[in-house]
């Protein structure tokens, strides 16, 4: 099993690498198209600001590569948001893999960012196999993906939003599985088994 973590200078990508390491799966941090294309699994991580992240993807041509990948791909947090059509953050056009838009939380008096552990409700997607409804995941985000046909996990924070999305071989999660204790470990294992 080879796992490529897309390296485009987006904040903390060590956490996800260490999480995979704990599962006994070494992962390669890379921005090389050939390495990404040939990996069995691809993880598209990201924390930070959307427009500058998208600029970095464009600079290395990764914006064109990612939508053409055919193996299971998992976008995490900002990675997932960039896989959507558009995000309000920096008024940024996304990769258009998920047919939904990303908005800023503006629900007084709820705090922004949405930070901490919240419960998820999910479909029978293989990504959530063995994970109980209402399991806790760690969240830290100020923008959310709206519900859409590709929503496979939803969460409530003043409104319902997509905490997990799937289209074909593309998966995205708003939470941080690498920081979500047991449920996160299970989800990563499920992703590796897809």
């Amino acid at each position: 099993m080879s796992v490529a973590i897309i390296d485009y200078g987006a904040g903390n990508i060590q956490s996800i690498r260490f999480a995979l390491e704990r599962l006994g799966v070494p992962a390669i941090l890379t921005d090389q198209a050939a390495v990404i294309t040939n990996a069995d699994r691809v993880i598209f991580p990201g924390v930070g600001e959307a427009s500058s992240a998208m600029e970095k993807l464009k600079a290395s041509g990764l914006d064109a590569l990612i939508p053409t990948l055919t193996q299971p791909v998992l976008g995490i947090c900002l990675g997932m948001q960039l896989m959507c059509n558009h995000t309000e953050e920096g008024n940024t056009k996304g990769l258009g893999i998920f047919d939904t838009s990303v908005k800023r939380f503006e629900i007084k008096p709820l705090k922004v960012p949405h930070m901490g552990w919240n419960t998820s409700q999910h479909t029978t997607s293989k990504l959530f196999e063995g994970i109980n409804q209402g399991s806790y995941f760690y969240m830290v985000h100020s923008y959310y993906a709206q519900l859409c046909e590709e929503t496979i996990g939803r969460m409530d924070y003043g409104l319902n939003f997509s905490t997990a999305l799937q289209k074909d071989n593309f998966y995205g999660v708003q939470f941080h599985p690498e920081k979500s204790s047991d449920a996160g470990v299970q989800l990563l294992q499920n992703f590796l088994k897809l």
């Binding site: 903390n12 924390v47 930070g48 600001e49 960012p113 830290v140 100020s142």
Partner: peptide, 8 residues
Amino acid sequence: SQKFGSQC
């Protein structure tokens, strides 16, 4: 916050 995002 501009470089890394306010979440961190």
